[in-house]
Amino acid sequence: MHKCTKCGREAASLEEIDAGCPCGSKVFTFDRQAVQAVASEAAVNGNASAAAQAVVNGNGGNGAAQPEGNGKAVQEEGGKVPESYFARTTFTDDDIENIKVLTQGVFLLDVNAISKNPVVLKDEDEVYYVKLPLEQKHPASAQVEGNGKKE
């Protein structure tokens, strides 16, 4: 959920954020707590898809895409109910991954952890994938250093 910093109005859509608040302000803050509350509620109800969507879209308050259906509906649509792990929408200290696959095509990212560690993703079969950091010496700096040695 995004709130206008000037008048406190909640943005109903991403388009409204792009266009700016009717009060004239174009600055919005993101209310993480409200989003987590809705996401957690959806997860408790067994609707991982809605929970993930709430987090990914940043929708949590008025005008937000509310969770639809329940676990059964997810099962009927996707053919599989996410296990409780994948229905969780927060990271705990026990998690070593920093990206969760909440349901097919929907991911939850621990941005803070990603900024410090390699990207680690765990899939539904409990298989881990690691994206190694790709740091290469800049050709220009390597050349400068090389020239320095020669001189």
Partner: peptide, 16 residues
């Protein structure tokens, strides 16, 4: 599965 989890932690630790 426990070994896989520990091994993944090890990869992260090695990179860090």
């Amino acid at each position: 599965q426990k070994r896989a989890r520990e091994a993944t932690l090890g990869v992260v630790e090695a990179v860090r």
